[in-house]
Design a protein around this nucleic acid. Structure first.
Lengths: 141, 141
DNA sequence: AATTAAAATGCTTTCCACAGCCTGTAAAGA
DNA sequence: TCTTTACAGGCTGTGGAAAGCATTTTAATT
């Protein structure tokens, strides 16, 4: 459902939010901690920088950090930048002409579930997740 | 979410169920009607034959037809054969160690939605869909 | 028996997400 | 100013899904 790039992006953003301070976190540190390819992660995070969820800084002690408060970054924002929003509008059977006015046989029941998933991603912020991590016992990202 | 092969399989199965009679429907007819590659569709339907959702017959007037009543074929059956069931058990962030006892930060909210989708596919049969098509105005598959 | 229709199957090709590597560029520190 | 650090971004390789092609097998019809 989510691309590998998107999953990695979410994991990285959670890691960054959890360790959010004034200084920058290096991409190589994140890649090591999350067991990801440095090169692949670099490109994903570049997208998030362009999407204004992250700020980056080059040179020694450089890295990335959140561009805004963790409570202002929703999961859907990360998904939109990495995967786009096709998933939340496309027909589950891949029919281009399918829409509310012109439904495929399973359009309505899918539109319902799809909408709930979208709401879930819209209503969850990085702050929520970090708080949950501190409350619950969660596995290492 | 669903692979192209799975989407095609569902569309084909709906078409077959809608036109279900005693005689066999040729794969080339289905491919033409649904605007699919004959070769690709052949391979998908072969899987469904092996999975015992379809019966096939070679030679003149051959083709495929449902192996059982339309009310005994659920969408989840088609999905299991073409894509497997990984989707309904895997962590949305791709973490192997994630489980109910050992959750990732968004495990529970995802497990909830995922379960609803699974129920949707489990509770929808080809008969339900064909009835809906006859009742509602649906687009061409 | 020969011909023809249609599924079964193996082989090849195409395409894209994923991943890795290398160079360019910005910034800090000596 | 030179060296080092670290993000930016281009280029290339790889695996699996999707798609196309060709041959084989089965069965009906003439």
């Amino acid at each position: 459902m989510l691309s590998t790039a998107c999953k990695d992006a979410i994991r990285a953003m959670i890691y960054i939010a959890k360790n959010n301070k004034d200084d920058f976190i290096s991409i190589s540190e994140i890649a090591k901690e999350l067991n990801l390819s440095f090169y692949f992660l670099s490109k994903i995070l570049q997208k998030l920088v362009k999407g204004e969820l992250l700020k980056s800084y080059r040179g020694p002690n450089g890295g990335v950090k959140l561009a805004k408060s963790a409570e202002d970054i929703r999961l859907i924002d990360i998904i939109e930048i990495t995967d786009g929003t096709k998933f939340f509008s496309e027909c589950i059977l891949g029919l281009e002409k399918c829409s509310d006015n012109n439904p495929c046989p399973i359009h309505y029941m899918w539109a319902d579930k799809r909408g709930e998933i979208q709401k879930m991603f819209e209503s969850t912020t990085l702050k929520d997740i970090v708080e949950d991590i501190n409350k619950l016992q969660c596995i290492k990202l």
